[in-house]
């Protein structure tokens, strides 16, 4: 009798685990095939000297990784991306949150605004490049025109060609194009907060600010972390806007990691080294994201 029932438990346990794995099976299979395999190849290439064409690859060990430490333009480009990411984390997400809060409540025309705020991400890169190129243009630009209108002619300049302003100008375009993403997720997050919690708070006599601090913020922390990680990932991999406006110039002022990787891969014919850059880049992003997840978990426990 006894062994039989034990057997039964085992079988049901195995069955239970199998169903659990079945849930992740499709995603996992696709991932192993189309994600992990190219991923390992990139790692493998990162320890080789290869121009992307030749049939043989020369194994160089960690030499590429040693070289990257003294690659000034590369670390510069990382700093540029980090700067844009920082601006985006603060301003883009603040804007997205404010707009999401405004639209989340019963406001006239809420529907229309919700649609309009998602337009920039939808626009093609060509349109974005043309429009912003025109705004920032040194001679015929809208921005200089407005400054003249406000009596601030002395600030007028070719915004994208001045190393002092070019990176920030790029960041503004990026934030303008990107806040729609955060807006959509934050809106979904706000909608996900059970209304009962607010009603309970109202019963306790909480005002608007108290409701925001005591209900909205704690419930939204995981979504905030999600949006932050997405902002960092999206911003660090910025490329399209730069390709459409400055090409990394003037000098190296608006170079970002992806433009550097492409420069190694296509310009310099160093495919192996480009993979090294990609790996280093990925590892740094991973560390940043995991740290964020850790912190958010800690915050949740508090």
């Amino acid at each position: 009798m006894k062994p039989k029932s034990e057997n039964k438990i085992n079988i049901s346990k195995v069955m239970d685990l199998t169903t659990s794995y079945l849930f992740i099976l499709p995603a996992l299979v696709i991932f192993l095939l189309f994600g992990l395999y190219p991923f390992t190849q990139v790692f493998w290439l990162s320890v080789h000297n290869w121009d992307g064409i030749a049939l043989s690859k020369v194994f160089v060990g960690l030499r590429n990784f040693i070289e990257i430490f003294s690659d000034g333009p590369w670390w510069n480009s990382m700093c540029h991306a980090a700067y844009i990411a920082l601006l985006a984390l603060i301003f883009q997400n603040a804007l997205a949150l404010i707009l999401a809060l405004l639209v989340d409540k019963d406001i006239r025309g809420g529907n229309i605004f919700r649609v309009i705020f998602y337009l920039p991400p939808v626009l093609s890169g060509i349109v974005v490049g043309l429009i912003w190129g025109w705004i920032y243009d040194g001679n015929y630009g809208l921005l200089n025109h407005w400054l003249g209108f406000l009596g601030l002619e002395h600030l007028a300049r070719a915004w994208l060609s001045d190393p002092k302003t070019s990176l920030t100008c790029i960041a503004v375009i990026h934030m303008w194009k990107g806040f729609g993403w955060g807006f959509v997720i934050l809106l979904a997050g706000l909608q996900g907060i059970p209304r009962a919690l607010y009603e309970a708070a109202e019963v306790d006599g909480a005002g608007m600010w108290q409701k925001f601090v005591n209900v909205t913020i704690p419930m939204m922390i995981p979504v905030f972390v999600l949006v932050m990680i997405m902002t960092i990932l999206g911003t660090m991999q910025i490329f399209d806007i730069i390709a459409a406006t400055t090409n990394g110039g003037p000098g190296y002022a608006t170079e970002v990691p992806v433009t550097r990787i492409l420069a190694s891969m296509q310009g310099a014919s160093r495919f192996g080294y480009a993979c090294t850059q990609a790996v280093v880049f990925g590892v740094i992003l991973l560390i940043v994201s995991l740290t964020q997840l850790r912190i958010s978990k800690k915050m949740k426990q508090v």
Partner: peptide, 20 residues
Amino acid sequence: ASGMITMVNKHAEQTFANQR
């Protein structure tokens, strides 16, 4: 021309074609 060092060639072509 101002902004020339970050100009993409297509933008330069627009500028010249439109007599600017």
